[in-house]
Amino acid sequence: MPAGFDPSRRLPDFFANPGTSSFTQFLSLNAPELLPGRRPLPPGYSADMAPHATTVVSIVCAGGVVMAGDRRATAGNLIASRDIEKVHPADPYSLVGMAGTAGVGIELIKLFQVELEHYEKIEGAMLSLDGKANRLAALVRNNLGAAMQGLAVVPIFAGVDLAATDPAKVGRIFSFDVAGGLYEETGYDGIGSGSLFAKSALKKRYRPGLSVDEAVTLGVEALYDAADDDTATGGPDLTRKIYPVVMSATTEGTRRHTDEEVGAIAEAVVARRMENIGG
């Protein structure tokens, strides 16, 4: 029943009842087949079945956050995609990225975007940043069964806390575990197979109060370091002009940094590494 309305002459229930403000709950009552994590999977471990998306990093900067993701998806030893996009705006003031099974991750992000927009439209008010993070944790939790069979996906969520009184706490980052655990991070965080190396790079270079541009450069460098040591993370592809997806969220909204901007930064990073391999 894709139209959402009962074709019979009777009024569908959700006309008469006020229902919830959650799109996910609405789907679970009226169209459960559209929810990830509600589909029966054949027994066994199916991790190698679908492409995997890898490294995303997020960095707190003055007045907001920056999130950057590499462009590679892998299927075993093969490159499944060179230009996948793992970083998306969740709503006008927050960003979400994903690592793990790409198909499930993209569906999760799409559902999360609708979830936030739906709440805002129904209630006439936006969720708080913590409320948004909790909703995302619930979506991850619903996927636990599939995750245990190898179709795991872990998001990272970062955004602007519009209610923050301390300017240093405007940008906030939340990480998740596969069971739906929600953890607030300080300063920076990364997810995906290359995050070990990306986070090591960030640990040495991050300092509080970076400008947006500095944080973007830092993010691109961290992804370069991740790609240096992790085969599943793609470095900046200068020949095809495929660069990391970099987005920032500030009180003015979210913005995707253009390929020209990120390309210039990526080329500068590569040029510096020509002289000093360790960066």
């Binding site: 894709p2 139209a3 309305f5 006309f15 229902g19 789907l27 799409k110 739906h118 439209k121 129904i122």
Partner: peptide, 27 residues
């Protein structure tokens, strides 16, 4: 208000199942 909520639900459900461009006012 009941009708408004139902409209938002219908629009979001259609946009989620198909594409955002497939939601139109006439429907």
């Amino acid at each position: 208000e009941n009708l408004r909520r139902a409209g938002v639900r219908m629009a979001d459900l259609n946009g989620y199942s198909y594409d955002r461009r497939d939601v139109n006012g006439r429907a």
